[in-house]
Simulated scan of single mutants.
Amino acid sequence: MRVGADFRPAWWLPGPHLQTLIPNLLPRRGVRLRRERLELPDGDFLDLDWGPPRRGPVVVVLHGLEGSSRSPYAAGLIRRLAMAGYQGVVMHFRGCSGEPNRLPRAYSAGETADIAFVAGQLRTRLPDRSLGAIGVSLGGNALLRWLGEAGEAAPIDTAIAISVPFDLSQAALRMERGFSRVYQWYLVGRLKRAVASKCGRMPMPVDREKLPHLNDFRSFDDAVTAPLHGYRNVDDYYTRASSRQWLRGIRIPTLILHTENDPFMTPGVIPEAGELSDAIRLEVAAEGGHVGFMDSLGRRWLERRCVAWLEDTVGGS
């Protein structure tokens, strides 16, 4: 089902960029986190940051590109989950927890094996607790792709995906236009620094001399992301890793929140109703930016909507 979102943007945050930037610049109250390291079968590790202990359902938060538990949206979600009685936990993708991972590979928009591993571990460890997941941006794309692959075998009970780049190729093209190039410059710069640092610690199948010249997502993904994660090239990566073609396979209750003015992509990447399985509710707002959704009172509608969905699908504490 595709419907309009019940969201009214703050009048003092017009346009896509203020809604995108201001929520990340305003101070946020966080909560104390407890770190847990999970060893992976391939010799690498993942770090989980657990929110305050709660008795309610467990909700895993999957951050976006170069995000972490310190990202304002992640910190806000964990705090709001705790207030509502949910046990929140941030799963860091490889290399995003503040400590470099051990292998040349890192993470990508098509990463599903690590999500499956964490979900399986939590389901085994906490068999009597309901389990949900919230994926943001890149994390949302990976979550939806995993759910589509898993179908009825998905070991979680509910999911939420926010500001998802459903079509990675179209999203990359959008980031080369207008002010969105500023976001691209910032994010690609962070990615290049991380890879350069890694090249100094271990052998990498990457030409380090080319790194300074990789100034957009498409060139970076072609030279770095694709070869590190088993894709032939950037087109193979974008085609196979995009979540849009996996949506019909999702079988658990899933809420997708999106805006038509997301500066990280065009409205054309938003799936039509016929592309969705019966388990999906896609709510599209005309405005709200990328992971913004600040309403007329300056509050974070996004967090309230996530908690309301969880209450409807897995209940409270």
Results as ranks from 00 to 15, higher is better:
Tyr107Leu: 10
Leu122Gln: 03
Leu147Asp: 07
Leu131Thr: 06
Val136Leu: 15
Trp146Arg: 04
Gly140Met: 06
Ala133Ser: 07
Leu122Trp: 01
Pro155Trp: 04
Leu122Thr: 02
Gly148Thr: 04
Ser130Tyr: 13
Asp114Glu: 09
Gly148Lys: 07
Gly151Ser: 07
Arg105Gly: 06
Asp128Arg: 15
Leu131Asn: 11
Val118Met: 06
Asp128Gly: 10
Gly132Ile: 10
Glu152Cys: 02
Trp146Met: 09
Ala153Cys: 03
Pro127Gly: 06
Asn141Leu: 06
Ser137Cys: 14
Ala109Gly: 12
Ile134Tyr: 03
Arg145Lys: 15
Gly148Asp: 03
Gln121Trp: 14
Gln121Asn: 12
Ser130Ala: 15
Gly140Gln: 00
Glu111Tyr: 06
Phe117His: 14
Thr124Asp: 14
Gln121Met: 11
Ala154Lys: 03
Trp146Leu: 13
Ala109Met: 10
Ala119Ile: 00
Leu131Arg: 02
Leu126Ser: 05
Val136Glu: 07
Phe117Ser: 10
Gly135Gln: 06
Leu126Pro: 01
Val118Gln: 04
Asp128Thr: 15
Ala133Leu: 11
Ala119Glu: 09
Gly132Leu: 01
Ala154Tyr: 07
Pro155Ile: 01
Thr112Pro: 01
Ser137Ala: 08
Ala154Pro: 04
Thr112Ala: 04
Gln121Leu: 13
Gly120Val: 02
Ala153Tyr: 00
Ala142Met: 01
Gly120Tyr: 05
Asp128Ser: 15
Leu138Ile: 09
Glu111Trp: 02
Pro155Gln: 00
Ala142Asn: 05
Arg123Phe: 04
